[in-house]
Design a protein around this nucleic acid. Structure first.
Length: 232
DNA sequence: GCGACAG
DNA sequence: ATCTTGTCGC
């Protein structure tokens, strides 16, 4: 028995570390994704999650920001830092970033009613982007908010704020392209878990103020990338 | 075989 | 993701 080089999060204990096994796990986990609204109404609290890196990528830094769903005021913020476990591989992002995100989640004093994760939900080759993986593992309602398309294609989109078009992959809808801010590249939003496809656009726009990113993800982004103490 | 490819 | 100043456009 050789001791692991770095702490392994329980959710990844069964993973043998190979790309092939990771893909097999994604296929199984994807079957557990629920695409129906399963969150508290009205929403009381929401949370944003994102990851950044330190020490030339050797340390993974996850940020969690809990906020009041009504006033949008931050209630608490946390940062979890752990040794980076794996390099970036398109399609396997969650195996690299989720362990740190789960640690940040554990630091919250109470679970949020709805979670926004920086990255894709089911808009993924095997329908298990990091937001969907996060949702299935925690069973928390979750939405994926990405800045670029990983897979799929969509028609042209109007410049007006709030405009949206369907993102398709192999003929099926996997998410939406949403213009959260005029003259800015659209966001790629998709259900992560316990959120219906038809609800995603509204839920994201509900928390967009004057920036391209919705507040939960925008604040977590600043904390994870240390934008909060630097410029911007 | 060649290009694409979340963060 | 990260390294980084100024610059074009709304």
């Amino acid at each position: 028995m050789s001791a692991p080089r770095v702490p392994v999060h329980p959710a990844f204990a069964e993973w043998d570390g190979s790309v092939a096994h990771a893909r097999a796990m994604q296929a199984e986990l994807a079957k557990r994704v629920v695409l129906r609204d399963g969150f508290a109404k009205p929403l009381r609290t929401i949370a944003g999650f994102d990851v950044g890196f330190e020490e030339n990528g050797e340390v993974t830094r996850a940020a969690a920001v809990l906020m009041d769903a009504q006033t949008l005021r931050p209630i608490e913020s946390h940062v979890a830092r752990i040794p980076t476990v794996m390099p970036y591989v398109p399609g396997l992002l969650s195996f690299r970033e989720l362990p740190a995100l789960l640690d940040a989640l554990a630091m919250l004093s109470a679970p949020p009613d709805l979670v926004f994760v920086d990255g894709h939900g089911i808009a993924h080759p095997r329908r298990l982007g990091i937001a969907a993986h996060f949702g299935v593992v925690t069973d928390l309602p979750c939405i994926g908010v990405a800045k670029k398309i990983l897979v799929g294609a969509a028609p042209e989109l109007h410049q007006m704020r709030g405009a949206y078009v369907t993102l398709r992959h192999h003929g099926e809808q996997i998410g939406w392209l949403l213009r959260s801010k005029p003259n800015c590249l659209p966001l790629v939003v998709s259900p992560g878990h316990r959120v219906a496809m038809a609800s995603v656009g509204d839920l994201v726009m509900r928390y967009v103020t004057t920036y391209r990113l919705p507040e939960p993800t925008r604040l977590a982004d600043r904390l994870a990338s240390r934008r909060d103490i630097k410029r911007g």
